[in-house]
C-alpha cells in the first residue's frame, strides 16, 4: 500500500495543460503541408514517390495536395527539385469540410473551418462510439490514448462509450472493408438522432492506401454524413484531441 503511494508520487503529475499549452512534438514531426507556387513544367517527381496518390503537380501554379489522402510521409518534400512542398509543425490538421483538405499554393490550408451544423448541444458533454472498420490499430491506438492521463479526455466532458445507444455520434477509423460495412451501418443506425460522424485517419477520410483495393472503398461510405475529417496516418493524438475540442466548442478558449 505504502509502496503504491510512494510510487504514485514518483510518477508525478503528467497531464498536459492542453489547449492552453502547445504540446511538445518531435523535431521530425510533419504537420500541415505548405505548398509554394512554382512552375512544375513536366516534372512529376512528387507524384511518382507519393505512396497514396495524394499529390499532383501542375504545369503552372505548383502542386495540388489532398490532405485527406496524405500520409504525411514527406517523400514529396524530399524529391521536389524546387522545394515547393514543406510541412509546418502545426498539428491542427482537421477540417469540418472535406473540400478544405484539398490544398494548393493559391488555396492553403485555412484551418478547421465552420461546422456544417450547430454543435452547441455537445459543449458540456460529448459521448462517442468508436468503430474500427478495417483500421490497422494505429488510429485506434492514438484515439484510445486520449483516455490516458497525458491527455485526460474526461476533463473536457468527452468520453468513448460502449453502446451506440449511449452515444451522440460515431468516430470511424479504417478504410471500411466490405466485411465491416454492415456492422458499421448497423452501429450508426443504433445511435439516436441527432448524431454526428467523425472520420479519423486518411483511410477513413478517403480510403487512404487501401482505396484501390476491391475489398475497401473511399473510406466512410457516403450513406454516413461525415461532420469532421481528421487526416493523418495515423493523426497525432493531439490532432484528434484538437478536432474533438472543436466539436465541443472548447478549442479557442485559450
Amino acid at each position: 500500500m505504502f509502496r503504491i503511494i510512494a510510487e504514485r508520487f514518483r510518477q508525478k503529475y503528467r497531464t498536459v495543460n492542453y489547449p492552453r499549452v502547445d504540446p511538445a512534438l518531435p523535431a521530425r514531426y510533419l504537420g500541415v503541408p505548405r505548398l509554394r507556387a512554382v512552375d512544375c513544367g513536366s516534372c512529376t517527381a512528387c507524384a511518382r514517390v507519393c505512396p497514396s496518390g495524394a499529390i499532383s503537380p501542375r504545369p503552372e501554379g505548383g502542386p495540388q495536395l489532398d490532405m485527406g489522402r496524405c500520409l504525411f510521409c514527406g517523400a514529396c518534400r524530399d524529391v521536389c527539385p524546387q522545394e515547393a512542398v514543406s510541412f509546418s509543425r502545426d498539428h491542427r490538421v482537421a477540417a469540418f469540410n472535406r473540400d478544405d483538405l484539398l490544398i494548393s499554393p493559391e488555396k492553403p490550408f485555412a484551418g478547421i473551418g465552420e461546422p456544417q451544423r450547430d454543435f452547441s448541444l455537445y459543449a458540456r458533454s460529448l459521448s462517442l462510439r468508436e468503430v474500427s472498420a478495417a483500421g490497422c490499430n494505429a488510429c485506434e491506438a492514438d484515439t484510445n490514448v486520449l483516455g490516458t492521463l497525458t491527455y485526460d479526455l474526461g476533463r473536457f466532458g468527452i468520453s468513448f462509450v460502449a453502446s451506440p445507444r449511449h452515444a451522440d455520434g460515431l468516430l470511424v477509423t479504417g478504410p471500411v472493408s466490405r466485411n465491416m460495412r454492415a456492422a458499421l451501418l448497423d452501429t450508426y443506425a443504433a445511435i439516436a438522432e441527432p448524431k454526428l460522424v467523425i472520420a479519423v485517419g486518411s483511410c477513413a477520410v478517403s480510403g487512404g492506401l487501401f482505396q484501390p483495393s476491391p475489398e475497401c472503398g473511399d473510406g466512410v461510405p457516403a450513406r454516413l454524413p461525415v461532420d469532421l475529417f481528421v487526416p493523418g496516418c495515423p493523426p497525432s493524438p493531439w490532432s484528434i484531441l484538437d478536432a474533438l475540442l472543436a466539436v465541443s466548442g472548447r478549442r479557442n478558449k485559450r
Binding site: S132, A134, G135, G174, P175, S177, R178, N179, M180, A183, F210, P212, S213, P214, E215, C216
Partner: peptide
C-alpha cells in the same frame, strides 16, 4: 475473424 480483410496481399 475476417471483418478486417482489406485485400492487403493482392493490393
Amino acid at each position: 475473424l475476417g471483418f478486417q480483410h482489406r485485400g492487403a496481399e493482392d493490393l
